[in-house]
Simulated scan of single mutants.
Amino acid sequence: MGIKVVPRYGKSFKDKLYLPAIAGGMKTTFKHFVKNFKDIDNLKTMAYPEVQPTDLNERYRGVHRLTKHENNTEKCVACFMCATACPADCIFIEAEERFDGYDEKRPKEFKIDLLECVFCGYCVEACPCDAIRMDTGIFSFTSSKREDFVLDKKALMANERSKDLNNG
């Protein structure tokens, strides 16, 4: 067997100090600082939350919503496909029998924990009834209590599709 010897670089005292690399990095940072300081109007920043993003397209995944039939009942049939597909295990469903003639069952309880959600969209892809979507356009969700980040069925059905994303 042939053994290949690979030479190791950085053995000199100058390389071990890392000072030239640090100086090079500081030089690049200082060049950007001077350039941005001279032309402040050309900076690519926005004053969030006063200025909201306008570049959201229809594929943007925001906070979830449950879709409804024409009579405002949920389309969800409590098949548990979304909860099964969820890698974060943040969807909790409790089913009950349905007597309104649409389907056999519906969710008695449907909760999504937004603090555990990774917003991957697998729940939307897995849903056979197109009952769950992530097209609300809500991208910032703040609160001071953890309980506010757990959205129940009522809150999910109250979320509407974003008007900005409707034009896409």
Rank of each mutant, 00 (worst) to 15 (best):
37 F>Q: 09
46 M>W: 02
63 V>S: 04
32 H>W: 08
64 H>C: 01
72 N>P: 03
60 Y>G: 00
37 F>E: 01
66 L>D: 02
34 V>M: 14
40 I>W: 10
65 R>A: 10
39 D>K: 08
59 R>D: 12
32 H>M: 13
30 F>M: 14
68 K>H: 12
58 E>I: 07
34 V>H: 05
63 V>K: 02
50 E>G: 15
50 E>A: 13
38 K>F: 08
58 E>Y: 12
27 K>F: 15
45 T>A: 08
57 N>G: 13
89 D>C: 13
53 P>C: 05
89 D>V: 11
72 N>R: 09
63 V>F: 06
69 H>F: 10
73 T>D: 14
88 A>Q: 11
29 T>W: 05
36 N>G: 09
72 N>E: 14
24 G>K: 15
63 V>I: 14
26 M>G: 13
31 K>L: 09
81 M>D: 12
55 D>C: 00
71 N>P: 00
70 E>I: 02
63 V>R: 06
35 K>G: 11
87 P>W: 10
49 P>L: 03
54 T>N: 05
61 R>S: 01
67 T>P: 04
53 P>V: 03
50 E>F: 15
85 A>Q: 09
82 C>W: 06
47 A>N: 15
52 Q>D: 01
41 D>F: 08
88 A>D: 12
77 V>M: 08
23 A>D: 00
71 N>M: 01
65 R>Y: 10
32 H>Q: 10
50 E>N: 13
71 N>C: 00
67 T>D: 13
32 H>S: 12
45 T>F: 09
45 T>D: 00
64 H>G: 00
42 N>P: 02
55 D>L: 02
24 G>Y: 09
83 A>K: 06
44 K>Y: 02
76 C>T: 04
